[in-house]
Design a binder for these strands. Structure first.
Lengths: 171, 171
DNA sequence: AGTCGAGAGTTCAAATTTGAACTACTTGCC
DNA sequence: GGCAAGTAGTTCAAATTTGAACTCTCGACT
């Protein structure tokens, strides 16, 4: 009896109005490995970043997104979107980063309600220091484990999945 | 200038002793889509499960793993491993589930230190109710978005990634 | 037997995350 | 102009997560 993660082990003929389409072995394996890899990877990156730079993965990603943005700054909402996190969660983390001197807040000229999070020089510098180690680990644990083709499929497939999810959310 | 998530936007010729191998566009895309899809998916599943069954994704997975285990029971440590979570985190969640009457604790006969988490009838029942909706959503958002080949690659590739991570952790 | 390092779970305090409520501002439209 | 509906961010309380410290037990070895 296959050990599944999304269904009780042996779907009995019972309970729900329409018999759902359970996941077959391959589908189950894909889903399982996705969840597991994601969790394991997160734990590892979290640990490494905290040890090497004192940043959480979330904080690191905030810096990255800001550094990639036009003036090293992004509106809070836009940033929250890119990070896929809650607005309140972002408010919290930006405050933390502000205390650390890595990020600043400026108010938006065109919209009084708006707030820009902005990378400080110190933030840029810390990111510069933190990036190599982080990238190296991502490479070691994920990128270099997969072939070029596998990477392409990952990018493609999960890109579609993300796109679909973003659409749904926008409803 | 490519927007990367693991490196500052334009890797300047600076800072670290050995110039790291940055991620090229494809690699970056793969990594980005993985992280994003994972976050989006988690948020969605979390929401759905909570609404439909009052369970968090973590709690749901605990029930699943237990239901798939020999006597509907697993040692705490083993369960924590499967879930990829901290021991203390598991202690907390098992206590929650216990309060809800979905899981029980039995002590291990052969090892006084050991504790089994065990699915109750009520737990089995709730899982039976929760599973169809959850599976349907996983299918809709991930499985059915990908082709059979893409799924195979996912399972394979991420399986390897997980295996590697598990090995490393065991060091 | 006696001891010492490792393992199993729990407890604890601190950090994080989240949704809901709230404030203040914008916008589209009469 | 003036309003209703929607937006941007923050605040707040509650739930969760984590690592470190701690307790107790196992096991191997002397």
């Amino acid at each position: 009896m296959p050990s599944t993660s999304s269904a009780p082990s042996a779907p009995p003929s019972a309970a729900s109005p329409y018999e759902p389409r359970w996941l077959d072995e391959e589908e189950m394996a894909a889903w399982r490995s996705f969840v597991t890899a994601s969790n394991l990877l997160n734990r590892r990156l979290e640990r490494q970043l905290k040890e090497d730079s004192g940043l959480s993965h979330t904080q690191y990603e905030i810096l990255v997104h800001l550094s990639a943005a036009p003036a090293g700054s992004l509106r809070m909402t836009e940033l929250a979107d890119k990070l896929v996190t809650s607005k309140s969660g972002l408010t919290y983390q930006v405050t933390q980063l502000e205390k650390m001197g890595l990020v600043g807040r400026r108010s938006c000229p065109s919209d009084v309600r708006g707030v820009f999070a902005e990378l400080t020089d110190q933030g840029r510098e810390l990111l510069r220091e933190a990036a190599p180690g982080h990238v190296a680990l991502v490479r070691e644990l994920l990128i270099d484990v997969l072939s070029r083709e596998q990477l392409a499929v990952l990018a493609d497939g999960l890109g579609q999945v993300s796109a679909r999810l973003r659409l749904d959310d926008a409803l």
